[in-house]
Design a protein around this nucleic acid. Structure first.
Length: 567
RNA sequence: GCCCCCUUAGCUCAGUGGAUAGAGCAGCUGCCUUCUAAGCAGUUGGCCGAGGGUUCGAAUCCUUCAGGGGGCGCCA
């Protein structure tokens, strides 16, 4: 399908060239030409302020420039006309016959509607969720899952070959605590006296795992140390996470274990590479430390520091602790080096706001090693606040005070979860009111959008029952309302490009709702099977609704939601 | 103290330097004999946090300030 603003820009450029050749416009460097749908439909389908931008360069009045451009505008099948409006806008109208014929173009593309060329032949990777297996997936993490998966779907729509990756660590202190917690719960389940470790995981789910373990091995693990418990807990919890994600429509292609970066020596190679570039030193405190900091450190053992201040940081960062153990940051840099070495053309990393600083250090590491950091897009989303009974729930996996995703999906289903977490800009905090999500589910935008698809499906059930076909429909019989819908549908391509360029997947949710807003009033009056609708008009309308159904199925699929036939 | 995000209708939020700033929810008035009323029609509601700047043009860009959220470990 055509991306209409781009097509219009080509025409404007040609018009300016031709105006210059004719001596109507002087020579000047062309600024970026913008074409957008105007705020008000009576101004046309697309509009450009280019003449106003050019006024100074061409030393002519905007209105005059606009007239000149319009006069030199070449013809195009989609172009119905162009006019000049007051301050100096050029307004374009689509050719109505062409517009009506787009019904066939939409049907021809089907489920691949608006699959673009942008990423053709290129590989993209999206890393998201990346939660360590210490507890069930909770609603806060789910925001990253929804944003990441939707970005992946958008990239696929742009023609990229996309890989979804999940990075995890099953070797650290967190996991030891998990093992020790299960050990304690196991002993308790068998009636022994055992205290939870101080930094253990207090959530009820650890009791469930213990009960399951007792059922499997009885009392034969009484003398076991924490390691087998850790492995058992990890296996169970990863199963939960995978199942929850699957239920949400999210499936990762690669699970990348941080440990492998130690096994193949990548962690230390990364440190050596940074050292070679002169970014590494050993010291008890960082080079720029104040007297107080130095005094506080006393004669502590030296740690290994990354001179990030040379790259704009206000403080250097530790990569290897005095104990000789790396911090989380070093393997994370090594991991991103690994990603770059795998030859992706585009990397996306979806993180919660609490990791904002971390990624800065990783980015500086990549920069220090000579990688092009512009290839890496980091999407940082703000937090999800959950309200239940009007009360804010502070989520901590360790304290067990979290709402598991599955509990929410049990109550509202996966589609509203996806929609609510997608529909807001990643930059905004989300207030997820559980009571509202459940109680008001009939007045949800989710169902408003899905109902558009349901209504289309209903028309085709009726068509089938009556044996009525849309073959050889005469699309010229379509009316004004159908054209309003088609104009909106044809803007989908622009929206997809914008959503990816800005890493703003919520654009999809906004666009889907806008499209449904146009659909429902139209459906109310543009009937197919009605005694007053002549057969040839009915045929054209049925053809049109076939296209409309494809539009909604495509939008819902891109959002990872169902496109139901019944509700 | 430093960094990031937010501030737009009663509430929750969209808004890509362009023309008269938009939805949903809540409120009010109507509409089911025709393909799903989870819908439609109508209506109420705005100093776009405040000041300054850039621009032909600012909710949008820059800057100062105020208010709210989050982050600032040799944790992961």
């Amino acid at each position: 399908m055509k991306i209409l603003p781009q097509e219009h820009i080509v025409l404007i450029r040609q018009a300016i060239e031709s105006a210059r050749a004719a001596g109507d416009l002087p020579a000047f460097d062309l600024p970026e030409i913008r074409v957008q749908p105007p705020a008000r439909p009576e101004h046309g389908d697309y509009a450009s302020p280019v003449a106003m931008q050019l006024a100074k360069l061409a030393r002519k009045a905007p209105l005059e420039i606009a007239e000149i451009i319009v006069r030199h505008l070449p013809e195009a099948p989609f172009l119905g006309g162009a006019s000049v409006a007051k301050p100096g806008f050029i307004n374009f109208r689509l050719n109505e016959d062409w517009l009506k014929q787009q019904v066939e173009a939409i049907i021809a593309e089907g489920d691949a509607l608006f699959t673009l060329e942008r990423g053709k032949g290129q590989r993209a990777q999206v890393e998201f969720v990346s939660a360590n297996p210490t507890g069930p997936l909770h609603i806060g993490r789910t925001r990253g899952a929804v944003i990441g998966d939707t970005i992946a779907r958008l990239l696929e729509a742009l023609g990229y070959d996309v890989e979804r990756e999940y990075y995890f660590n099953n070797a650290g202190r967190q996991m030891e605590m998990l093992g020790r917690t299960l050990q304690a719960r196991y002993l308790q389940a068998l009636g022994h006296d055992a205290a939870l470790p101080e930094e253990g995981y207090a959530g009820e789910y650890m009791k469930d795992i213990a009960a399951q373990l007792v059922e499997e091995v009885g009392d034969s693990w009484l003398e076991q140390d924490w390691q087998p418990f850790k492995e058992y807990a990890e296996k169970i919890i990863f199963g939960w996470i995978r199942d929850s994600l699957l239920r949400l429509g999210v499936r990762h292609d690669v699970f990348f274990n941080e440990n492998s970066l130690y096994e193949d020596g990548a962690v230390w190679r990364t440190l050596d590479a940074l050292r070679e570039q002169g970014y590494i030193y050993e010291a008890p405190v960082w080079e720029g430390a104040s007297e107080e900091e130095r005094a506080a450190a006393g004669d502590a053992a030296p740690a290994t520091w990354f001179r990030t201040t040379r790259l704009g940081d206000d403080k250097d960062r530790v990569l290897v602790k005095a104990s000789g153990e790396p911090t989380y940051t070093l393997p994370d840099i090594a991991y991103h080096v690994n990603k770059f070495e795998r030859g992706f053309d585009l990397l996306v990393n979806v993180l919660g706001a609490d990791h904002g600083l971390q990624y800065q250090t990783v980015r500086r590491g990549l920069q220090a090693l000579g990688y092009d950091p512009s290839k890496l897009h980091v999407v940082i989303h703000q937090m999800v606040r959950i309200y239940k009974d009007g009360r804010l729930i502070k989520g901590s996996t360790r304290a067990g005070d979290v709402i598991p995703l599955d509990d929410v999906m049990d109550q509202v289903g996966p589609d509203p979860v996806r929609y609510f977490l997608l529909a807001r800009s990643p930059n905004t905090d989300v207030d997820f009111d559980l009571d509202l999500a459940i109680a008001h589910n009939n007045e949800n935008p989710v169902y408003y959008i899905q109902n558009a698809h349901v209504r289309c499906a209903g028309i085709f059930r009726m068509a089938e029952a009556r044996g009525f076909s849309d073959e050889d429909a005469d699309l010229s019989l379509l009316g004004e309302q159908e054209m309003v819908f088609l104009r909106q549908a044809l803007r989908m391509g622009e929206m997809l490009l914008y959503a990816v360029d800005e890493m703003a997947p919520h654009q999809l949710a906004v666009f889907a709702l806008d499209t449904a807003r146009i659909f429902h009033p139209m459906y109310d009056t543009v009937r197919v099977f009605h005694s007053e609708v002549p057969e040839d008009v009915a045929r054209a309308r049925l053809r049109f609704y076939r296209a409309a159904r494809i539009v909604f199925r495509r939008l819902l699929t891109l959002m990872g939601m169902n496109a139901p036939d019944f509700m």
